[in-house]
Design a binder for these strands. Structure first.
Length: 481
RNA sequence: GCGCUGUUAGCUCAGUUGGAUAGAGUGUUUGGCUACGAACCAAAAGGUCAGGGGUUCGAAUCCCUUACAGCGCGCCA
């Protein structure tokens, strides 16, 4: 065994130093240490040296004090390894200085490696699918979606830089009672208005009718309660709600007229989303729609039932018993045979597996309110034989709150994504004008630069916060440029 | 009630596998600048790392416990 210290793409300098320290310890104190016992870190800037060896763990072997032990090791390394130029010991910390020759040699070698630090994916690299964004089609994107999108997109870039093949995917929730509410309100009060006729961005237009529905629905509830109904009764029996439910039934039965409105309004929303995604600088490789996946899960659940992974109750509903995993029992199919949310996610997983059988890892970028859902989904997918089920990653992130608390769409306290971006671009533009830094540029160039600065500030504001934590956005204090 | 997550400077947040005097931005105070009370420059003050206990040579970091906050525990998605 001899001391080595040389630039090596496979083994970093800390590991090499660690091996050298092991040799030193063996020769000095005749004691064997393993790599995990050696702690080496970069020397803090207030001390001199490049790397610091923590000597406390060696005291039992050396039977000497920390300072003396540090000096012993430092001296041994300096004498036997020419790249170790010098050392000093402070308390139990041995600071090593590496020779300038080593650094120059290293930089030289790095200079000749194309794409140093990036791992290029190969045929055999793992295939990772990342799901993010996942909007509903009844309202425009808000600040919460911005956090989701920026996290998801960044994650995909990081995974790529680490040598994974990445598929970015988006599951659009395009069906259900919520979109029927917008459709109904548009039918009643819309007078045939379109994004073109009104000049309103499609997703905002549809969102406006969702808000309209809620407002009118609340009025109906109030009136019914004034007539003596309980709140619960009024909510269920309000004509708007029953009409929306009727519309959903028609949709599920394939009613041509309902489907026509549904397709048209969704297409408005998609055009609006596309614009917002573009401004945010995010994109997707493959988009799934719940209207196409929500029935797929039933088949898988039936399969699991046949295999004995799930069981059926007397009323015909299908359940998974997860008490063995420390969780509860979970409904998978209603008594009438229709799907629930969980069934739908199983269906989406099935379609993805059909499309990309070689997926090694699945990452879901979804808010922390769904932590339990994904815990359950992981177990269910595993039971159903998805190889990535057990290892699926729920990249859970916290909510974006306002100083007054949570954003609520019904109370109009959401921070709209388009508004926020536009406002930031404007601020950025005005500031550039005031400071006169871009006086030599054309108006178009200034706009262009302002957009980049605004987006950069927004990305930094969002991504600087630990994803797990809830974060606060204060609209009164504009985002710092 | 049960489960998961969080709590670090006035405010918004960093703090890598447990290591040296816990950091940054902002705000505050002081000084500088022939562009004003600057989205400028410099400096200072500001901490019981939520409280308590434990493990360790050493804890913001690991374990237990209490408090507070968020989320979940729907045949909603």
């Amino acid at each position: 065994m001899h001391l080595v210290l040389k630039f090596n793409t496979q083994m970093n300098i800390e590991s090499q130093l660690s091996e050298n320290v092991i040799i030193a310890l063996k020769n000095l104190y005749n004691t064997d240490f393993e790599a995990k016992d050696i702690q080496i870190q970069k020397t803090k800037k207030e001390f001199s040296g490049d790397f610091t060896v923590i000597v406390f763990p060696f005291l039992k072997a050396s039977k000497k004090g920390p300072e003396q032990t540090g000096s012993d090791i430092g001296e041994y390394l300096k004498q036997n390894q020419k790249e170790i130029y010098g050392y000093n010991v402070i308390k139990g910390f041995l600071n090593l200085t590496i020779s300038a020759d080593y650094w120059l040699g290293t930089l030289n070698e790095i200079n000749h490696i194309a794409g140093f630090g990036l791992v290029t994916p190969t045929e055999s690299s793992p295939l990772v699918m990342i799901e993010y964004s996942s909007p509903n089609t009844n309202k425009p994107l808000h600040l919460g979606h911005i956090r989701n999108n920026l996290l998801g997109y960044s994650l995909s870039k990081i995974m790529q830089a680490n040598g994974n093949k990445v598929i970015k995917t988006n599951i659009v929730n395009d069906r259900g009672i919520h979109i029927c509410k917008s459709m109904l309100a548009w039918q009643i009060w819309g007078n045939g208005v379109t994004p073109e006729s009104s000049g309103i961005k499609g997703d905002h237009l549809v969102g406006d009718y969702y808000v309209k529905f809620d407002k009118e629905y609340k009025t109906e509830i109030k009136d019914l309660m004034a007539q003596g109904m309980t709140e619960e009764e009024a909510k269920a029996k309000a004509p708007l709600m029953t009409s929306a439910q009727e519309m959903l039934r028609k949709w599920e039965n394939g009613d041509a007229e309902v489907h026509a409105i549904w397709s048209m309004m969704n297409s408005w929303v998609y055009a609006g989303f596309a614009e917002t995604y573009k401004r945010l600088g995010v994109d997707f490789d493959k988009i799934y729609y719940e209207s196409e996946t929500y029935l797929e899960g039933k088949e898988k659940v039936e399969e699991g039932l046949a295999k004995g992974a799930f069981y059926k109750r007397e009323d015909g509903s299908v359940w998974a018993d997860l008490t063995g995993e420390g969780l509860d029992e979970k409904l998978l199919l209603r008594a009438d045979g229709t799907s629930v949310y969980m069934t739908q996610d199983i269906g989406t997983a099935k379609l993805r597996y059909d499309d990309y059988p070689q997926i090694n890892k699945m990452i879901y970028v979804v808010g922390n309110e769904q932590n339990y859902h994904f815990q359950v989904l992981s177990i269910l997918l595993d039971k159903l034989g998805f190889k990535w089920g057990k290892e699926l990653v729920h990249f859970s992130y916290g909510m974006v709150e306002l100083p007054e608390g949570k954003m609520k769409s019904r109370e109009g306290t959401v921070v709209d994504a388009d508004d926020l971006i536009a406002e930031m671009e404007q601020t950025s533009f005005e500031t550039s004008q005031e400071l006169g830094k871009l006086d030599n540029c054309t108006e178009e160039e200034v706009r262009n630069i302002s957009q980049k600065i605004a987006l950069g500030a927004l990305k930094y504001f969002i991504l600087k916060v630990d994803p797990r934590k809830n974060m606060t956005f204060n609209p009164k204090e504009s985002i710092d440029f």
